[in-house]
Design a protein around this nucleic acid. Structure first.
Length: 712
DNA sequence: CTAATCGAATTTTTT
DNA sequence: ATTCGATTAG
């Protein structure tokens, strides 16, 4: 048996198309992989195939994903499949790999060895600071807009000097000025934002021929997952690192492109076969996840999009249940319906996912789940390393490792409050700007020159001494002990407690968790040469500390977060015009992306799919009324079962105005059931009982009324 | 310098 | 409704 016969075992449980992809000859391959068609499987098997057929050694292979979740999953599955962990195989996110390259070549990239990664939050803070310093009117062009502008420029590989302005209006001019200052500050403070990671490596490879040759020779096979999410810079970056010889193995699905608002270019996937001649195109259309009903619905919806490569999912699986549709009176009623159904459908709560368009929709759902005492977990929101307390402590650490880090300096100079306010900081900034030095150096200079008056001099001295003591300890203490030390001595815990007792306690617990995380890190990275730097990068690049407990919870998340996941039962809620598709997308003329989002949502379900919409819901504290989403209409009616739900035929509340006389036909508003009219009444005074029709054609609700009923 | 108060803005989110 | 930020009063 030769090696390739052995490897053919890898092909055993694959279908024809998957096999064709995995065992493809050494050319470029573009795999159009529909939802649930086993794309990760193909990717992982391809790597194993290359290794086992000895087409490549592990260090010849580069595998790129977008999220850490995907990268971790890929690594796990490769190890499971091969039975060992191939050393030298480089897998990771675009940003993770770029970071790796910059750490290797920091000198060539003209960075300090201890350069720090700036997350979007810190990037925004920095931009705001610069706007203030440059005295630019932030009402003309908001900081967020400028942040987007800068990132967009970088994603087009445009430096501040080389920006090609589309328009020369005042706003754009101002944004460009900020961009210039921002670049300067980052360079000076050794700060690299997310996009900069990619841009810097891109420039490095572009401008340094020997380095470029080195990597182009090393990587003979480059595999990319979720290619539809790449932006311009990532694509250019990829082409550069691939060079003329490397073979690309690209997996993606244009129908699941839902990140255009973040710069993802669906065109890349269409461009690839044109730019890389002799690309083998393979479609994976057999779906192993969902029932026929669900797939038919998904196909029917996505068919309404004009701009697609074309693909139709099919399955050998069962017909399955029809889709269920519930029309709710309002968002509370919708939530009650979903929770009621979940309760009815058994105790395997983790089989249920509730998906929604906007995260604000989660609150009502959460309340309904609490009300019925059903365990749940909301995904998204604040992640561990994004929490203020964690970032505060890490800023101390950053300043200790690299004192010129202005972002870290600004963050903690007066956190906790030590009486260093604007009056004191402003001269430091001025000096720093004037001399072209960091805030840290400026404050030392100013102190030496007796530039601080009275109290300021004392507090600044204390602060500088404190940081200096930390700097010394970076050489002696273990990472986790250093963090522990910082927490104990910096005064943050007391500061948090003083601000808010309960919240403060939680923050302190998180700080304890940070020490554990550092300990964990030490254990898993024993031979790490620069543990502090790597830990800090890990904290920013992989902010998720998700101890995804596989416990029995209903899962709540936005549709965006659901991509790549699957659930036995999916509740897709808030299917209303204006919400989903979202009004902003309609205004921008980007319904197709919303439709792809809907397609993603539908194809998350293995067995049952519940759709729901509410006739009215609260929106920014105001009631709004909307029609059912067009996406519901795009699903063939014969696939849909309309369901009714009668959860409160006798809703009781207290009379607010006992002597009120209610006439039949009076329009009323109820916080739970929405708008209706009084159709009947019995009794009077204190125990008046009215019957209200809250939906013209459905069931009637008898209300024993009325503190929360408003007469209209 | 800090605390309180008022007003504006509010899709989606990874790295 | 709720949050964040800027302005204003202590």
């Amino acid at each position: 048996m030769n090696i390739c016969d052995d490897a053919s075992l890898l092909l055993n449980d694959l279908n024809t198309a998957q096999r064709e992809a995995v065992a493809a000859p050494e050319t470029h391959v573009l795999v159009l992989a529909g939802a649930g068609s086993g794309k990760t499987r193909v990717l992982v098997h391809r790597i194993a195939w290359l290794l086992q057929c000895q087409l490549a050694r592990a260090n010849h292979i580069l595998a790129v994903t977008f999220t850490n979740r995907a990268a971790n999953e890929m690594r796990d599955r490769i190890q499971k499949l091969l039975g060992y962990n191939p050393s030298g195989l480089l897998t990771g996110t675009f940003h993770g790999i770029a970071y790796y390259l910059l750490r290797q070549h920091w000198q060539l990239a003209q960075l300090p060895e201890t350069f720090q990664i700036l997350d979007s939050d810190e990037q925004l803070r920095l931009i705001k600071r610069i706007i203030k310093e440059a005295k630019i009117d932030d009402k003309v062009f908001s900081p967020k807009k400028i942040q987007q502008f800068i990132n967009a420029c970088k994603e087009k590989a445009q430096r501040a000097q080389s920006v090609v302005l589309m328009s020369t209006d005042r706003e754009t001019q101002a944004a460009l000025t900020v961009y210039q200052f921002y670049e300067q500050t980052c360079q000076q403070s050794g700060l690299v934002d997310f996009t900069e990671l990619l841009l810097k490596t891109y420039e490095l490879l572009r401008d340094d021929e020997s380095l470029r040759k080195h990597y182009q020779t090393r990587f003979k096979h480059i595999l990319v997952d979720e290619f539809q999410d790449t932006n311009y810079l990532q694509y250019e970056w990829l082409k550069l690192i691939a060079g003329p010889a490397a073979k690309l193995f690209i997996v993606g699905d244009d129908d699941q492109s839902i990140y255009s608002w973040r710069g993802a270019r669906i065109e890349n996937i269409q461009l690839l076969p044109v730019e890389f001649k002799e690309t083998l195109l393979i479609r994976l259309e057999q779906n192993y996840r969902s029932t026929k009903m669900i797939l038919t619905a998904a196909n029917a919806v996505i068919r309404n999009n004009k701009n697609r490569l074309g693909k139709e999912l099919w399955t050998n699986g069962t017909e399955g249940d029809p889709l269920f549709l519930y029309k709710a009176h309002n968002e509370i009623n919708e939530a009650e319906f979903i929770v009621h159904k979940i309760k009815l459908l058994g105790k395997d709560y983790h089989n249920n996912a509730i998906l929604y368009r906007t995260s604000s929709q989660s609150r009502v759902l959460e309340e309904a789940l609490i009300d019925q005492q059903i365990p749940y977990r909301i995904y998204g929101g604040m992640r561990f390393y994004e929490r203020a307390e964690i970032k505060d402590v890490l800023a101390y650490l950053r300043l200790a490792v690299y004192s010129d880090d202005d972002a870290a300096f600004e963050r903690i100079i007066n956190t906790p409050k030590r009486g260093i306010g604007e009056r004191t900081i402003e001269p430091i900034r001025a000096l720093a700007r004037q001399q072209g030095i960091s805030l840290w150096r400026a404050s030392r200079l100013l102190l030496a020159d007796n530039g601080f008056k009275g109290r300021a001099a004392k507090t600044i001295t204390e602060f500088l001494h404190y940081i200096e003591s930390l700097i010394e300890q970076t050489h002696t203490l273990l990472l986790s002990d250093l963090i522990k030390k910082i927490i104990e001595t910096c005064g943050l815990p007391d500061f948090y407690l003083k601000d808010n007792k309960e919240e403060g306690q939680r923050r302190i617990e998180n700080l304890a968790e940070l020490i554990s995380a550092a300990r964990q890190f030490e254990i898993f990275n024993r031979d790490e040469e620069k543990p502090i730097l790597t830990f800090l990068a890990h904290a920013t690049l992989d902010a998720n500390n998700d101890n995804a407990n596989e416990t029995n919870h209903v899962q709540l998340m936005t549709l965006h977060l659901a991509k790549g996941l699957e659930f036995k039962r999916v509740f897709l809620c808030g299917l209303e015009e204006g919400l989903f598709p979202h009004q902003n997308s309609l205004d921008e003329g980007n319904v197709e992306e919303e439709r792809r989002l809907c397609y993603v949502g539908i194809t998350r379900a293995r067995e049952q799919l519940y759709l729901s919409h509410a006739e009215t819901r609260y929106y920014y504290g105001e009631r709004s009324y909307s029609r059912a989403s067009r996406f519901i209409r795009e699903i063939p009616a014969e696939l849909i079962d309309h369901i009714r739900f009668n959860n409160a035929p006798n809703y009781q509340a207290n009379v607010k105005n006992k002597n009120e006389k209610f006439a039949i036909g009076t329009p009323v508003l109820h916080h739970k059931f929405g708008r209706g009219i009084i159709v009947d009444k019995e009794g009077q005074g204190e125990f008046t009982r009215i019957q209200v029709d809250f939906s013209e054609n459905d069931c009637k609700w008898i209300i024993l009324a009325y503190s929360d009923i408003e007469l209209l």
